[in-house]
Structure formats: structure tokens, C-alpha cells
Amino acid sequence: MSLLEVRNLKHKFRDGTEALRGVSFKVNSGDFIILAGKNGSGKTVLIRHLNGLYIPSEGEIFFEGKPIHKQIKWVRQNIGMVFQDADSQIVSQTVWNDTAFGPENLRLPKADIEKRVSNALLAVGMMELKDHSPHNLSGGEKRKLAIAGILAMDPRIIILDEPFTNLDYTGIIDILGQIVKLHKSGHTIICVTHEIEKVLYHSNRLIIMDRGLIAEDTLPEKGIFNTHKYGITPPMEEREGIEIVRDMTWLK
């Protein structure tokens, strides 16, 4: 049985825009999926359904075989979502308190909360900043804090919405390293990005969305040759007249 299953998902906004027009796919435990597509293709709308934040107009989503709308708390605990704008995910005035926000909402005992927060901050290398104000962190640190906040809830699937946006080279390397580490530690990853050359090497599936539909769901090594059709920068470059596929990771 797959960990997560999306069946014929449709979403229509009040103004009549059809953001999703019948999306179906499965996520297996241990997958590292790159969800790519140009702006407005429906990526963000899709992942917000996976966390129960949006209600579909049609279709259903199953987590471990059970419909997610019947067990939303359990689903949100198991499917963590890192938002594109890390600033909007920060709700507390210290790094420690912000990481504790999720476990506190789970009404866990104090000792468990402390253990989870401590482990999450150690995992992202931010323990020494625990008393700092999140407001004053750099872009990369804010994103790591957002990841720590999700890790503290102990999810099985982690969805990252455009994790490399607005980051400099060092920040991208840092976040990419974190994502790969999370995957190696057993988390299932869904990474929404159109900058596929930074991360594709680490993934086992490439899903490309186009106008509210899944246009490709394939192996990364096959999918890269079609990206240009869907408005995604082809991860190839021309050297001396020969097309060369780039490394597909910024981690060295």
C-alpha cells in the first residue's frame, strides 16, 4: 500500500479558475519526489491539499489508506509542510519557542516537547541560536528554523514549497544538505521546485505539472529531456556544440 494516494483531485477557485483538473498519483514510503512546473501550474495548490489546508472540489486523498479529511490532526502531524515564505511560518519570538509551537499544539508533556525541540534544532544545526529572535535570522537560517518546526512534529512526509527561493549560494547548499539528510534519515520528501538542476540527482521521481494536470510522472533521468516543453529551464548546457546534462545537484 502506498503511503499517500491522490485520486482525481480537482480544485476550482471562486472566480472560476481551475487550479487542479484531475490529479492522481501515489507517494511511496522513502520517495524523494521533485514536483516541478512553471508558475501557475498548480503545484502549491496541490501540496496544500496534501496537508488538508485546502478542501478539494472533487476527488480524494488517502494517507495510509484512510481519507485525510476524517483524521486531519493525525495527517498534519504526519505530513509536515515547509512554506515558501519562511517568514510567514515563524510565529514566535525565539528560535526555541517557534520550534516548540507544533509539539505544544499536540499537547505533549513538557519533557517530550523539550526533547523534540532539542533534537530538531540539533538536526538543523541551530541549537546555539535557540534564544535568538527568528526575526533577525538570515534567509537560510529562517528556512532551517521552518524545517526544525516541522521536524519537531515528527512527520513521515516532509513537503517543501520552493525551498531555494531567495537564498544565496551558501544558503542553497545548506538547505539542500538538510533535505538530503532528512531523506537519508527515513523521511519521504516532496520538494516543489522549478530549479531542478540543484536537487534532481537526489530524487527518485520527477513529477511535472502543467495547467492543473500531471504532465509527466517519470524517472528523473528520463524526465529531464522534456522539461523545456513545460516552461522549466532544461538542465542542459552546450559545450563545443555538444549538449551536456548538468550534475543535477549543487552538493559536492
Binding site: 489546508l53 498534519r76 512554506f83 510567514s88 510565529v91
Partner: peptide, 19 residues
């Protein structure tokens, strides 16, 4: 910003009160 933050809080199980 408030809309995004409330959605992010909801995804971390905020239900109108903090312990």
C-alpha cells in the same frame, strides 16, 4: 502575510489557543 501565517499555523495544528 496574516493569511499565509494563519495557514502555516493551521498546518502546525494551531486550534485557536496555545497551552
Amino acid at each position: 502575510r496574516a493569511g499565509e501565517t494563519s495557514m502555516a499555523m493551521e498546518s502546525r495544528l494551531y486550534s485557536g489557543a496555545l497551552p
